[in-house]
Amino acid sequence: MILKNATIFDENFELRKADIAVCGDRISRIGNGLEGDDCRDCSGCVVSPGFVDIHIHGCVGADTCDGTREAIGKMAAHLLTEGVTSFCPTTMTVPLTQIRKALSVVRDCMEHPPKGAAVCGANLEGPYISAERRGAQKETDIRKPDWKEFRELYQESGGIIKLIDMAPECEGGQEFIRYVSPYCRVSLAHTEADYGTAKQAFQNGITHVTHLFNAMTGLHHRKPGAVGAVFDDSSVRAELICDGFHIAPAVLRIAFRQLGEDRTVIISDSMRAAGMPDGESELGGQKVFVKNGQARLVDGTIAGSTANLHQEVKNLIRSGIPVRQAIKSATMNPAREIGLEQEIGSIQVGKRADLVIMNQNWDIAAVIHNGWQVQNNT
């Protein structure tokens, strides 16, 4: 397959005119005037790397914590229609038995992939978090950070855990970071940590922050908080939910400008209600109500999102975020956070042919995954 006459994001995420040749599941050539069988005219379109969602609980009625291949398969199939070609199914703060079952299924889906977006590993949002900042996480299932317990989960699952969220101020938190950071990304999340505690956590090995601003201490001119610590430490990357509901557009502009294009990671944090009509749903064993696309618990607490990365990229572009940074934050930056930047995340010869073709309005015209066109919206 050859994609002709496209405007592509090259390996440096600069927009330029080029053709892309695909052989098997790989990008084989990038240049001008490429010829071959199965040429497809992409005039007027922009070609982006496939989107990578490293924090997603569920969509279309399915959830990672369902602990079934059917659930992961439904998620994988739907995500491709939205341009997401790789993802990390994400657990909630639920009983350890349920986390173990979910990890077992994620591993099975990595070894025997269902049709759809590639399953790239698991993300554990909890259970080692702060009860005071639990958000939509179930308090009864919160546990103290226990690095030995985590190591058992990691080994039992075959090392598929890519991210583990935790609150460093909890008893044993800093020790947990030191022992666990060699295994996977440790992420600051659902935390009461002040500026000093967060900085200490970064020194001990945290390099990632879960949904910046949400469920953590904010930035105040006399109390910088966890948000201030993130802005003040260039070694840390931060997730942002860019649905326009979790974070106001003005704050998104400030954050993207402050963090720079290599430290921003767009996530959906979506739940099973994503891709479904408004109404009653569920997240982490708790009842959720969705109205106008906004998910909340009975007490009004925000409960994840119903968005997807493609919608969020469009939101960011409309909000004035540079296109280059928006695309990079949905592709290369998340790929780097899970150690797959040599395989996915950018348009380069030798990388997997995961591509999203968008028109001038940034609507998806087609999706290519593993070298095959799997979605055509034209």
Results as ranks from 00 to 15, higher is better:
Arg133Leu: 02
Glu175Arg: 14
Gly345Met: 05
Ala198Trp: 06
Phe51Lys: 02
Ser181Glu: 13
Lys148Asp: 10
Ser235Cys: 12
Glu35Ala: 12
Thr7Arg: 14
Thr210Tyr: 11
Glu139Met: 12
Gln311Ser: 13
Glu156Gln: 14
Arg40Asp: 04
Val288Asn: 08
Asp262Lys: 14
Met216Pro: 03
Ala18Phe: 00
Leu188Phe: 12
Cys65Arg: 03
Ala167Asn: 05
Leu103Pro: 05
Gly300Pro: 06
His369Pro: 00
Arg257Glu: 14
Gly135Asp: 09
Lys148Cys: 07
Asp262Cys: 07
Phe202Met: 07
Ala6Ile: 04
His221Phe: 11
Val22Ile: 15
Leu188Tyr: 12
Ile2Gly: 06
Pro127Lys: 05
Gly135Ile: 09
Gly275Val: 01
Asp243Met: 10
Gly61Thr: 02
Gln98Ala: 09
Val367Cys: 04
Ala193Gly: 12
Gly275Pro: 01
Val209Ser: 13
Ile206Trp: 13
Glu111Phe: 04
Glu239Trp: 10
Val288Ala: 03
Ile327Leu: 13
Glu152Met: 11
Val106Ser: 01
Leu212Trp: 00
Asp10His: 04
Ser329Arg: 03
Val186Lys: 05
Thr210Val: 15
Leu283Ser: 13
Gly44Leu: 04
Asp63Arg: 05
Ile338Tyr: 00
Gly159Glu: 06
Val356Cys: 01
Gln342Asn: 15
Lys351Met: 14
Trp362Asp: 09
Pro334Ala: 02
Ala365Cys: 15
Ala118Cys: 12
Ser268Cys: 08
Lys138Cys: 13
Glu82Met: 13
Ile347Asp: 03
Glu132Tyr: 06
Arg272Val: 00
Ala201Phe: 10
Asn204Gly: 02
Leu297Thr: 05
Glu312Trp: 03
Val323Met: 14
Asp194Trp: 06
Phe176Arg: 00
Glu82Tyr: 05
Ser234Tyr: 11
Asp233Met: 04
Pro145Glu: 09
Arg29Ile: 01
Leu15Trp: 04
Glu175Trp: 01
Leu240Val: 14
Pro49Phe: 00
Phe87Pro: 06
Gly24Gln: 07
Arg29Ser: 10
Met332Pro: 00
Arg324Leu: 03
Cys170Ser: 15
Glu192Val: 14
Val119Phe: 04
Asp243Ser: 07
Arg143Asn: 02
Ala215Asp: 00
Pro168Gly: 09
Pro322His: 08
Met271Asp: 01
Gly116Glu: 06
Asp25Phe: 07
Gln360Tyr: 04
Val349Pro: 01
Arg296Leu: 07
Val367Glu: 01
Glu175Lys: 15
Gly205Val: 11
Ile99Gly: 04
Arg222Val: 10
Ile241Pro: 03
Val46Asp: 06
Ser157Val: 08
Val349Ser: 02
